[in-house]
């Protein structure tokens, strides 16, 4: 998995600036749409660590996203984001540790089936038990934006812009953090496992621990994405944990390109944009989504990032 070079990074930074400037000219509706894309990008980026990084296809990733979202619902209403965000990460990481430790006893398709089954189990926990507050979802109070006693009061009119900036900031931090991580020994080991796990083990790496660490980190980051979606929409629903949601993130990864760290970000924006454009044509969203997947799988196996070769070093 390649990290964008100097030119690619510059383009990404320019794109981020453009998104940051959206509140100057875009309507609230489009700001919310941009936030949706930013959250989707965080979610897909977190999954890319598992899929593009370690070469493991997980179908249970949405569960960690949903747990991060439900963290706000489970904590007392209206407390600071400085508490809810770390709590969302911690809860998602604990769940990922449990699921990962069990699922990583298998490989390949069995890993996929196991993560799907455990993800569905967590879906049932929030769907069917009193913990989640009902199968139709619940409205939540947004966490307060205060840090070290400094509160940021947002007038209702500017909320969409504020959410956009928070989501953008967190996505940028996540991307830069992962780009740096891929340059460390840990990142190299992960890519080595993707290439040939047996060889890495022969070299003395504890491959299962490396994979588990990546899985847990990816879970925690999915928790951040879930937290951000819940905060942006002030609403949580068990559907956030459903495996279809995780499959959509896989689609974003494939759409953007499996081989590049920034691929999922491109893929998420393309996916959200396609979804929005398709509402103009038809109400049958699943039809459009299904056909898009078929087109990508059949015709564009290297994703959007594979089209512009100049993006790659």
């Amino acid at each position: 998995m390649l990290v964008a070079g100097r030119r690619g990074s510059l383009l990404l930074a320019l794109a981020a600036l453009l998104v940051a400037a959206l509140p100057l000219f875009a309507s609230n509706y489009h700001l919310q749409l941009a936030s949706t894309a930013l959250v989707a990008a965080m979610f897909a980026l977190s999954l890319q660590l598992v899929v593009g990084g370690a070469g493991m296809v997980s179908l249970g990733h949405a569960a960690f996203f949903g747990i991060g979202a439900y963290a706000i619902h489970l904590l007392p209403a209206g407390i600071s984001i400085a508490l809810t965000l770390p709590a969302a990460m911690a809860l998602a990481a604990i769940a990922a540790l449990a699921v990962g430790a069990l699922s990583l006893r298998t490989r390949g398709f069995f890993f996929l089936m196991t993560t799907l089954a455990f993800g569905q189990m967590l879906f049932f926990v929030f769907h069917d038990t009193p913990l989640g507050g009902g199968k139709d979802g619940v409205f939540i109070t947004r966490p307060a934006l205060e840090l070290f006693g400094l509160a940021w009061e947002i007038p209702r009119r500017q909320r969409a812009a504020a959410m956009l900036w928070i989501n953008l900031g967190l996505l940028a931090a996540m991307y830069v953090g992962l780009a740096l991580l891929m340059r460390t020994l840990f990142g190299r080991a992960l890519l080595g496992i993707r290439g040939n796990e047996d060889r890495m083990r022969a070299l003395g790496y504890d491959t299962r621990t490396v994979k588990l660490a990546a899985f847990v980190l990816a879970g925690a980051l999915a928790g951040v994405a879930g937290h951000c979606q819940a905060m942006t929409e002030a609403f949580v629903t068990p559907e956030m944990l459903a495996w279809h949601h995780g499959a959509e993130a896989l689609l974003m990864i494939l759409l953007g390109g499996l081989g590049a760290l920034h691929g999922p970000i491109l893929g998420a924006f393309a996916y959200v944009g396609l979804g929005e454009a398709s509402t103009l044509i038809t109400e049958r969203q699943r039809l459009v989504e299904g056909l898009v997947i078929l087109a990508v799988v059949l015709a564009l196996p290297r994703g959007l990032a594979g089209i512009g070769r100049g993006w790659r070093r």
């Binding site: 499959a247 896989l250 990864i253 039809l287 997947i293 078929l294 196996p301």
Partner: peptide
């Protein structure tokens, strides 16, 4: 002979199309 991810997404697309 394709990657797991391709197979997963292909069959996921089939679910969506069958349901639709």
């Amino acid at each position: 002979r394709r990657e797991h991810l391709d197979q997963v997404l292909l069959t996921f697309a089939l679910i969506l199309l069958f349901e639709e």
